[in-house]
Design a protein around this nucleic acid. Structure first.
Length: 590
DNA sequence: GCCGTTTTCGGCCCGACTGTTTTCAGTCG
């Protein structure tokens, strides 16, 4: 059973508690939701943690849920869960993925109409709404019946509660609206926030905070956005719309003197804010997007306002926390103790090691579009001191080993020529080499000896089981020339999950043998994922941030890789392409 | 059911919005 499946099961248990008696089981419900959320995003699989006796390292998993999870993995079911879930028709749960459906509404409709088929329940409700059978029910009306149809329509188009867009797509969508909002005279400051500001690799919906003294007109203007398809809600301080491309955009406003609190609140994450409010509550303070409320004598409250985020955090006795790490992963503790990491920044980057030029290498996979010279020019513009070219190895099936040797000799001469004629930048001769299914590198040692080092990666047979795949990767990486494992999980966001690896074993290997893991900045990869970066940082594994550019214009994707590194708490010392050329070459030959 | 810089017991984040109500319940972020 995967973490995602377990998380769903726990979510269903929480929903069942809410349906049975939300008041009575309020805290059980919250506890199960918390555990569900934590497990869904935890870097190690529950079944592995059980083996390693480390289940309690998941925040929100205590003695009770721990024993339930052990039972689940051992027997495939949990008596306690069954006893809770048994009273609830299973057809309630698929509805929880539909926007605007929560446990109560789903249960109400399922029992009212005796809808017992989980496979058809969404369609069944759609039929009932179309026939006008829902509006007469107590607690429902004409409008809510229409809203149900709308929500199901959007669900079927793919806007489920978990469907997310890629970071660059979200950035472009945000940019359009940003320039629209800035045209309004009462918009003093506008910032894209939420998951976009925290630089998640995927974005759910786009949030904006506006500083204004005239929220009414700003909101009116916002909901008139030409590319909107409809308005979801509209209030006095905020509104939500859906764009014609199906993206939800939320807007919240505050006057300038409270803008800091608004930024803080709207940036999230939800879990970070919950942690922060729990922390504040112990000091007798109550936090919201309006400011910090302090309980005074005679049951009165004093509200403190903050125009900047720094002042907001500082007034709680905390250092300002970079948005990328506001995920309730101990950052509040570190902020209190003044031990937050100094995260790596884009300006620290001095090199890029994963560049595909158009050198005629007759590669095994896609070739680059631009010449080495063009990419070098771009590298200089980006302020890099050195770069590494890593074209795919020449196709093995189409060449003899002699031909491969000749191609690489020519490439070596070319790079040597570049280095002797251009003193502004150093070029390292690398290659991205396939790790074959048997763990061998795709080209022979004689050819490899023409290179400074190699980047290695998996491009075939993704379906191997975890143990075999791990041995394959480690064997490939054990070659003395292999120094960097590129896009280590092989995932493509929204397209494929990547292969399975035994991560503790991979980390240990890298540490012992001086190998680096790549953080690949390609928008659909962003691989290593942030949670594995965090684990690598904890274990002092070195990483490199690369763009995997196939043309010069893509070299500015570096920013996304840096974002992922920052989300994983990486500092300058963790990232090898912050080193000087000499220091890096020393590592490369180590 | 979880958790600890007042606590191993007694707390548990906060507010907005909508629809259906006439003071609230449900959902969301």
């Amino acid at each position: 059973m995967t973490n995602i499946e377990i998380a769903r099961l726990l979510r269903n248990v929480a929903a069942s508690y809410a349906i049975k008696n939300e008041q009575k089981f309020r805290f059980q419900m919250l506890a199960y939701l918390k555990a569900s959320n934590a497990i869904e995003h935890f870097p190690s699989e529950v079944k592995d943690l059980i083996k390693e006796e480390k289940l309690e390292s998941i925040p929100g998993v205590g003695p009770s849920i721990k024993s339930h999870l052990k039972e689940l993995i051992k027997t495939g079911k949990v008596k306690h869960f069954d006893s809770i879930l048994n009273d609830i028709p299973p057809s309630v749960f698929p509805l929880l993925d539909v926007p605007s459906f929560g446990p109560k509404k789903a249960f109400h409709l399922v029992t009212e109409f005796k809808l017992n088929d989980s496979k058809t329940v969404i369609e069944d409700i759609k039929d009932l709404a179309e026939k006008g059978k829902i509006s007469p029910l107590e607690g429902f009306g004409e409008k809510s019946e229409k809203d149900i149809l709308q929500a199901i329509e959007e669900y079927k188009k793919g806007k489920t509660k978990s469907k997310r867009m890629t970071l660059p797509f979200a950035s472009e969508t945000a940019e359009l609206l940003l320039s629209y909002l800035k045209k309004h005279k009462d918009v003093l400051v506008v910032e894209p926030l939420g998951s976009l500001r925290r630089k998640l690799s995927t974005i759910g919906d786009i949030d904006f905070a506006v500083s204004t003294n005239n929220p009414k007109d700003v909101i009116k203007y916002f909901v008139l956005y030409p590319y909107k398809s409809r308005v979801i809600e509209q209030g006095e301080t905020g509104a939500s719309i859906i764009t014609s491309s199906g993206v939800q955009i939320d807007l919240l406003t505050q006057p300038p003197q409270s803008f800091g609190s608004l930024l803080q609140h709207f940036t999230g994450s939800k879990n970070h804010n919950i942690r922060l409010r729990e922390y504040a509550l112990k000091k007798g303070l109550s936090l919201s997007e309006k400011g910090i409320k302090k309980h005074m004598a005679h049951d009165t409250w004093h509200m403190a306002h903050f125009d900047t985020e720094e002042k907001f955090y500082n007034s709680l006795g905390l250092d300002w926390i970079p948005p990328e790490i506001r995920e309730d992963h101990l950052e509040v503790e570190h902020a209190r103790l003044h031990t937050l990491p100094k995260l790596v920044e884009l300006k620290d980057i001095k090199a890029d090691f994963h560049l595909h030029s158009n050198f005629p290498i007759e590669p095994s996979h896609d070739m680059g579009r631009d010449s080495m010279e063009t990419m070098i020019k771009t590298a200089l513009k980006l302020g890099y001191d050195y770069i590494g070219f890593s074209e795919h190895n020449p196709s093995v099936s189409k060449h003899t080993s002699e031909q491969i040797l000749n191609i690489l000799k020519k490439r070596k001469e070319k790079i040597e020529h570049i280095n002797s004629s251009n003193k502004n930048i150093r070029v390292i001769s690398l290659l991205e080499i396939d790790i074959l299914t048997n763990g061998c590198l795709a080209i022979a040692n004689k050819a490899l000896s023409l290179l400074d080092a190699t980047v290695v990666s998996i491009h075939s047979s993704f379906g191997m089981n975890k143990e075999v795949m791990t041995q394959r990767v480690l064997k490939g990486l054990s070659h003395p020339k292999a120094k960097i494992l590129a896009h280590p999980t092989g995932r493509l966001i929204n397209q494929r999950n990547g292969y399975e690896l035994d991560w503790p074993q991979v980390f240990d290997f890298c540490k012992k043998h001086n190998k680096a893991l790549e953080i690949n900045s390609w928008p659909l990869r962003l691989d290593l994922p942030d949670i594995l970066v965090r684990e690598a940082v904890r274990r002092d594994i070195k990483m490199v941030i690369d763009t995997d550019s196939h043309q010069a214009s893509q070299m500015n994707l570096m920013q996304y890789g840096v974002s992922i590194a920052r989300r994983g708490w990486a500092e300058k010392k963790d990232i090898l392409n912050t080193l000087s050329y000499e220091q890096f070459m020393k590592w490369l030959k180590s």
